[in-house]
Protein backbone atom coordinates (compact mmCIF):
# COMPACT_ATOMS: atom_id res chain seq x y z
CA UNK A 1 0.00 0.00 0.00
CA UNK A 2 2.65 2.47 1.16
CA UNK A 3 4.89 1.20 -1.59
CA UNK A 4 2.22 1.84 -4.16
CA UNK A 5 1.64 5.36 -2.91
CA UNK A 6 5.32 6.30 -3.03
CA UNK A 7 5.60 4.83 -6.48
CA UNK A 8 2.63 6.89 -7.66
CA UNK A 9 3.97 10.03 -6.05
CA UNK A 10 7.38 9.59 -7.60
CA UNK A 11 5.73 8.94 -10.96
CA UNK A 12 3.66 12.06 -10.62
CA UNK A 13 6.73 14.04 -9.65
CA UNK A 14 8.46 12.74 -12.71
CA UNK A 15 5.59 13.74 -14.97
CA UNK A 16 5.44 17.17 -13.42
CA UNK A 17 9.16 17.59 -13.92
CA UNK A 18 8.88 16.41 -17.52
CA UNK A 19 6.16 18.97 -18.16
CA UNK A 20 8.44 21.70 -16.96
CA UNK A 21 10.90 20.59 -19.54
CA UNK A 22 13.62 19.18 -17.41
CA UNK A 23 14.51 15.53 -17.53
CA UNK A 24 14.70 13.66 -14.22
CA UNK A 25 15.91 10.10 -14.38
CA UNK A 26 13.27 7.63 -13.11
CA UNK A 27 14.02 6.35 -9.65
CA UNK A 28 14.58 2.64 -9.31
CA UNK A 29 12.55 0.59 -6.81
CA UNK A 30 15.63 0.17 -4.63
CA UNK A 31 16.15 3.91 -4.55
CA UNK A 32 12.56 4.49 -3.55
CA UNK A 33 12.69 1.86 -0.85
CA UNK A 34 15.77 3.39 0.72
CA UNK A 35 14.55 6.95 0.42
CA UNK A 36 14.13 8.89 3.64
CA UNK A 37 10.36 9.17 3.37
CA UNK A 38 9.78 5.45 3.10
CA UNK A 39 12.17 4.56 5.90
CA UNK A 40 10.63 7.11 8.26
CA UNK A 41 7.21 5.82 7.39
CA UNK A 42 8.19 2.20 8.02
CA UNK A 43 9.79 3.00 11.37
CA UNK A 44 6.75 5.03 12.34
CA UNK A 45 4.42 2.20 11.36
CA UNK A 46 6.50 -0.32 13.29
CA UNK A 47 6.38 1.83 16.43
CA UNK A 48 2.61 2.31 16.19
CA UNK A 49 2.03 -1.38 15.59
CA UNK A 50 4.36 -2.40 18.41
CA UNK A 51 2.77 0.03 20.85
CA UNK A 52 -0.71 -1.09 19.84
CA UNK A 53 -0.01 -4.78 20.42
CA UNK A 54 1.88 -4.07 23.64
CA UNK A 55 -1.00 -2.07 25.09
CA UNK A 56 -3.54 -4.64 23.98
CA UNK A 57 -1.59 -7.55 25.39
CA UNK A 58 -0.93 -5.65 28.60
CA UNK A 59 -4.62 -5.01 29.24
CA UNK A 60 -5.33 -8.62 28.47
CA UNK A 61 -2.88 -9.80 31.12
CA UNK A 62 -4.87 -11.56 33.78
CA UNK A 63 -7.79 -12.33 31.49
CA UNK A 64 -8.46 -15.97 31.06
CA UNK A 65 -11.17 -16.63 28.52
CA UNK A 66 -11.37 -20.34 27.82
CA UNK A 67 -9.70 -21.24 31.13
CA UNK A 68 -10.71 -24.78 32.09
CA UNK A 69 -8.44 -26.09 34.84
CA UNK A 70 -8.52 -29.58 36.36
CA UNK A 71 -10.63 -29.62 39.49
CA UNK A 72 -9.96 -31.65 42.64
CA UNK A 73 -13.14 -33.64 41.93
CA UNK A 74 -14.07 -34.48 38.36
CA UNK A 75 -17.38 -32.71 38.77
CA UNK A 76 -19.40 -32.56 35.57
CA UNK A 77 -22.05 -29.93 34.90
CA UNK A 78 -23.20 -32.04 31.96
CA UNK A 79 -24.09 -34.87 34.34
CA UNK A 80 -25.78 -32.70 36.96
CA UNK A 81 -27.33 -29.72 35.16
CA UNK A 82 -27.64 -31.46 31.78
CA UNK A 83 -28.58 -35.13 32.11
CA UNK A 84 -30.13 -34.90 35.57
CA UNK A 85 -31.60 -31.42 35.00
CA UNK A 86 -30.68 -30.06 38.41
CA UNK A 87 -31.43 -26.34 38.56
CA UNK A 88 -28.34 -24.12 38.64
CA UNK A 89 -29.67 -22.35 41.68
CA UNK A 90 -30.13 -25.55 43.63
CA UNK A 91 -26.37 -25.57 44.00
CA UNK A 92 -25.46 -21.94 43.30
CA UNK A 93 -28.22 -20.76 45.57
CA UNK A 94 -26.69 -17.41 46.49
CA UNK A 95 -26.81 -16.11 42.89
CA UNK A 96 -30.27 -14.68 43.30
CA UNK A 97 -29.68 -12.87 46.58
CA UNK A 98 -25.99 -12.08 46.75
CA UNK A 99 -23.12 -10.52 44.90
CA UNK A 100 -21.47 -13.93 44.72
CA UNK A 101 -22.85 -17.04 43.18
CA UNK A 102 -20.66 -19.16 45.34
CA UNK A 103 -19.67 -22.76 44.80
CA UNK A 104 -21.86 -25.17 46.77
CA UNK A 105 -20.66 -26.37 50.15
CA UNK A 106 -19.96 -30.04 50.68
CA UNK A 107 -23.19 -30.60 52.59
CA UNK A 108 -25.12 -29.60 49.44
CA UNK A 109 -23.49 -32.48 47.57
CA UNK A 110 -24.48 -34.78 50.42
CA UNK A 111 -28.19 -34.10 49.85
CA UNK A 112 -27.91 -36.51 46.94
CA UNK A 113 -24.63 -38.30 47.38
CA UNK A 114 -25.55 -39.69 50.77
CA UNK A 115 -27.59 -42.03 48.56
CA UNK A 116 -25.66 -42.06 45.26
CA UNK A 117 -22.45 -43.63 46.49
CA UNK A 118 -21.05 -45.46 43.51
CA UNK A 119 -21.01 -43.45 40.28
CA UNK A 120 -21.50 -44.92 36.83
CA UNK A 121 -18.37 -43.29 35.41
CA UNK A 122 -15.70 -43.30 38.10
CA UNK A 123 -17.19 -45.71 40.60
CA UNK A 124 -15.92 -44.88 44.07
CA UNK A 125 -12.96 -42.80 42.87
CA UNK A 126 -14.54 -39.36 42.82
CA UNK A 127 -17.48 -39.66 45.18
CA UNK A 128 -15.31 -40.91 48.06
CA UNK A 129 -13.56 -37.53 47.99
CA UNK A 130 -16.82 -35.89 49.06
CA UNK A 131 -17.09 -38.30 51.99
CA UNK A 132 -13.46 -37.83 52.99
CA UNK A 133 -13.97 -34.07 53.01
CA UNK A 134 -17.05 -34.03 55.22
CA UNK A 135 -16.47 -37.19 57.23
CA UNK A 136 -19.27 -39.47 56.13
CA UNK A 137 -18.94 -43.20 56.35
CA UNK A 138 -20.74 -44.58 53.30
CA UNK A 139 -20.59 -48.12 54.65
CA UNK A 140 -22.67 -47.31 57.71
CA UNK A 141 -24.45 -44.25 56.29
CA UNK A 142 -23.39 -42.22 59.32
CA UNK A 143 -21.32 -39.10 59.82
CA UNK A 144 -18.12 -39.96 61.66
CA UNK A 145 -17.86 -38.52 65.15
CA UNK A 146 -14.92 -36.23 65.92
CA UNK A 147 -13.83 -36.55 62.33
CA UNK A 148 -11.73 -33.42 62.55
CA UNK A 149 -9.36 -34.93 65.10
CA UNK A 150 -8.87 -38.24 63.28
CA UNK A 151 -5.37 -39.03 62.05
CA UNK A 152 -4.65 -39.68 58.41
CA UNK A 153 -4.16 -43.40 59.11
CA UNK A 154 -7.60 -43.70 60.67
CA UNK A 155 -9.22 -41.91 57.75
CA UNK A 156 -7.31 -44.04 55.30
CA UNK A 157 -8.52 -47.21 57.02
CA UNK A 158 -12.16 -46.15 56.75
CA UNK A 159 -12.14 -45.21 53.09
CA UNK A 160 -9.80 -47.84 51.69
CA UNK A 161 -12.06 -50.43 53.32
CA UNK A 162 -15.10 -48.81 51.65
CA UNK A 163 -13.41 -48.73 48.23
CA UNK A 164 -12.29 -52.35 48.62
CA UNK A 165 -15.71 -53.55 49.75
CA UNK A 166 -17.43 -51.81 46.86
CA UNK A 167 -14.93 -53.40 44.48
CA UNK A 168 -15.72 -56.82 45.88
CA UNK A 169 -19.45 -56.16 45.75
CA UNK A 170 -19.43 -55.00 42.14
CA UNK A 171 -17.08 -57.74 40.93
CA UNK A 172 -18.82 -60.35 43.09
CA UNK A 173 -15.60 -61.56 44.63
CA UNK A 174 -14.96 -62.81 48.12
CA UNK A 175 -11.46 -61.39 48.43
CA UNK A 176 -9.47 -58.48 47.05
CA UNK A 177 -7.38 -59.74 44.15
CA UNK A 178 -4.22 -58.00 42.86
CA UNK A 179 -6.20 -55.64 40.68
CA UNK A 180 -8.42 -54.73 43.59
CA UNK A 181 -5.44 -53.90 45.79
CA UNK A 182 -3.92 -51.78 43.03
CA UNK A 183 -7.23 -49.94 42.56
CA UNK A 184 -7.58 -49.21 46.25
CA UNK A 185 -4.04 -47.82 46.56
CA UNK A 186 -4.46 -45.76 43.43
CA UNK A 187 -7.82 -44.29 44.44
CA UNK A 188 -6.60 -43.46 47.93
CA UNK A 189 -3.50 -41.71 46.54
CA UNK A 190 -5.74 -39.64 44.28
CA UNK A 191 -8.10 -38.75 47.12
CA UNK A 192 -5.19 -37.61 49.24
CA UNK A 193 -3.71 -35.56 46.41
CA UNK A 194 -7.01 -33.87 45.60
CA UNK A 195 -7.93 -32.89 49.12
CA UNK A 196 -4.55 -31.58 50.21
CA UNK A 197 -2.19 -28.92 48.90
CA UNK A 198 0.74 -26.81 50.11
CA UNK A 199 -1.49 -24.84 52.47
CA UNK A 200 -3.96 -27.53 53.40
CA UNK A 201 -2.21 -30.55 54.90
CA UNK A 202 -5.22 -32.29 56.38
CA UNK A 203 -7.61 -34.41 54.34
CA UNK A 204 -10.63 -33.31 56.34
CA UNK A 205 -12.11 -29.94 55.56
CA UNK A 206 -13.32 -28.05 52.52
CA UNK A 207 -12.78 -29.11 48.92
CA UNK A 208 -10.52 -26.46 47.44
CA UNK A 209 -11.90 -25.92 43.93
CA UNK A 210 -9.83 -24.04 41.42
CA UNK A 211 -11.49 -20.69 40.86
CA UNK A 212 -12.19 -20.01 37.19
CA UNK A 213 -13.96 -16.66 36.87
CA UNK A 214 -11.93 -13.87 38.33
CA UNK A 215 -12.67 -10.19 37.93
CA UNK A 216 -9.93 -7.87 39.13
CA UNK A 217 -10.47 -6.45 42.62
CA UNK A 218 -11.33 -3.00 41.30
CA UNK A 219 -14.51 -4.21 39.65
CA UNK A 220 -17.85 -4.66 41.40
CA UNK A 221 -20.05 -7.32 39.90
CA UNK A 222 -23.28 -8.45 41.46
CA UNK A 223 -25.10 -11.64 40.52
CA UNK A 224 -28.43 -10.81 42.13
CA UNK A 225 -28.55 -7.54 40.16
CA UNK A 226 -28.30 -9.49 36.94
CA UNK A 227 -30.13 -12.69 37.83
CA UNK A 228 -32.98 -11.40 40.01
CA UNK A 229 -33.45 -7.81 38.84
CA UNK A 230 -32.19 -8.08 35.27
CA UNK A 231 -33.75 -11.56 34.87
CA UNK A 232 -30.81 -12.78 32.79
CA UNK A 233 -30.21 -16.47 32.22
CA UNK A 234 -26.94 -17.85 33.58
CA UNK A 235 -26.19 -19.09 30.08
CA UNK A 236 -26.07 -15.55 28.62
CA UNK A 237 -22.80 -15.00 30.44
CA UNK A 238 -21.54 -18.50 31.21
CA UNK A 239 -22.39 -20.28 27.96
CA UNK A 240 -23.90 -23.73 27.65
CA UNK A 241 -22.87 -24.90 31.11
CA UNK A 242 -25.26 -27.85 31.00
CA UNK A 243 -23.13 -29.34 28.19
CA UNK A 244 -19.78 -28.89 29.88
CA UNK A 245 -18.04 -31.89 31.36
CA UNK A 246 -15.26 -29.60 32.49
CA UNK A 247 -16.23 -26.09 33.51
CA UNK A 248 -14.81 -23.43 31.23
CA UNK A 249 -14.87 -19.64 31.14
CA UNK A 250 -16.81 -18.61 28.04
CA UNK A 251 -16.77 -14.81 28.31
CA UNK A 252 -13.71 -12.53 28.29
CA UNK A 253 -14.88 -10.66 31.43
CA UNK A 254 -13.38 -7.53 29.94
CA UNK A 255 -14.79 -4.07 30.45
CA UNK A 256 -15.84 -3.93 26.80
CA UNK A 257 -17.90 -7.07 27.29
CA UNK A 258 -19.85 -5.59 30.20
CA UNK A 259 -20.33 -2.23 28.47
CA UNK A 260 -21.48 -3.76 25.19
CA UNK A 261 -24.19 -5.73 26.87
CA UNK A 262 -25.29 -2.73 28.92
CA UNK A 263 -25.63 -0.68 25.74
CA UNK A 264 -27.61 -3.34 23.92
CA UNK A 265 -29.74 -4.97 26.59
CA UNK A 266 -33.17 -3.60 27.29
CA UNK A 267 -34.13 -3.70 30.91
CA UNK A 268 -37.33 -5.54 31.68
CA UNK A 269 -39.02 -2.32 32.66
CA UNK A 270 -42.67 -3.23 32.66
CA UNK A 271 -44.19 -4.61 35.85
CA UNK A 272 -40.87 -4.65 37.65
CA UNK A 273 -41.17 -3.04 41.07
CA UNK A 274 -37.45 -2.34 41.09
CA UNK A 275 -37.92 0.34 38.44
CA UNK A 276 -41.12 1.87 39.78
CA UNK A 277 -39.48 5.17 40.62
CA UNK A 278 -38.06 5.86 37.16
CA UNK A 279 -41.17 7.96 36.53
CA UNK A 280 -39.84 10.01 33.61
CA UNK A 281 -39.01 6.93 31.55
CA UNK A 282 -42.40 5.43 32.38
CA UNK A 283 -44.14 8.59 31.23
CA UNK A 284 -42.09 8.74 28.05
CA UNK A 285 -42.91 5.12 27.33
CA UNK A 286 -46.60 5.76 27.91
CA UNK A 287 -46.49 8.82 25.64
CA UNK A 288 -44.82 6.74 22.95
CA UNK A 289 -41.69 8.91 22.88
CA UNK A 290 -39.48 6.04 23.95
CA UNK A 291 -39.78 2.46 22.88
CA UNK A 292 -37.09 0.94 25.09
CA UNK A 293 -34.85 1.57 28.04
CA UNK A 294 -31.38 0.06 27.92
CA UNK A 295 -29.14 -0.61 30.89
CA UNK A 296 -27.06 2.33 29.70
CA UNK A 297 -30.10 4.62 30.07
CA UNK A 298 -30.45 3.81 33.76
CA UNK A 299 -26.79 4.46 34.38
CA UNK A 300 -25.14 1.18 33.49
CA UNK A 301 -22.20 3.00 31.89
CA UNK A 302 -21.29 5.13 34.90
CA UNK A 303 -17.79 4.31 36.06
CA UNK A 304 -18.60 4.24 39.75
CA UNK A 305 -21.35 1.64 39.30
CA UNK A 306 -18.72 -0.94 38.42
CA UNK A 307 -15.57 0.52 39.97
CA UNK A 308 -15.37 0.95 43.70
Amino acid sequence: MALLLTKIISNLNQIAAAREGEHVPAKSIAQILTSKGVITFLIFAAIILGAYTTVNKATELGRQEGYAPDQPIKFSHATHAGVNKIDCQYCHDSARRSKHSSIPSTNTCMNCHAAIKNGSTYGTAELTKIYASIGYDPATNKYIENYDSKTEEEIKAIYTKWIGDEYKRVKEKADLDDEGVRLVTQQWADIKKSLTNEQKKKIQGPIEWVRIHNLPDHVYFNHSQHVTVGKLECQTCHGKVEEMDVMKQMSPLSMGWCINCHRQTEVKFKDNAYYANYTRYHEEMAAGKRDKVTVADIGGLECQKCHY
Partner: peptide, 24 residues
Protein backbone atom coordinates in the same frame (compact mmCIF):
# COMPACT_ATOMS: atom_id res chain seq x y z
CA UNK B 1 7.05 -15.01 35.01
CA UNK B 2 4.52 -12.18 34.92
CA UNK B 3 2.37 -13.85 32.31
CA UNK B 4 1.76 -16.86 34.47
CA UNK B 5 -1.56 -16.40 36.25
CA UNK B 6 -1.43 -17.91 39.70
CA UNK B 7 -4.01 -20.56 40.51
CA UNK B 8 -6.70 -19.10 42.71
CA UNK B 9 -8.95 -21.24 44.81
CA UNK B 10 -12.60 -21.10 45.69
CA UNK B 11 -13.14 -22.69 49.06
CA UNK B 12 -16.75 -23.25 50.08
CA UNK B 13 -17.93 -24.31 53.51
CA UNK B 14 -17.98 -27.98 54.39
CA UNK B 15 -21.27 -27.51 56.21
CA UNK B 16 -22.74 -24.13 55.45
CA UNK B 17 -24.72 -22.56 58.29
CA UNK B 18 -28.19 -21.84 56.94
CA UNK B 19 -28.29 -18.19 57.89
CA UNK B 20 -25.10 -17.33 55.99
CA UNK B 21 -25.21 -16.33 52.33
CA UNK B 22 -21.68 -15.60 51.15
CA UNK B 23 -21.48 -11.94 50.19
CA UNK B 24 -24.48 -10.83 52.23
Amino acid sequence: AGCDIPVKRAIPYVIKPDQIVPGV
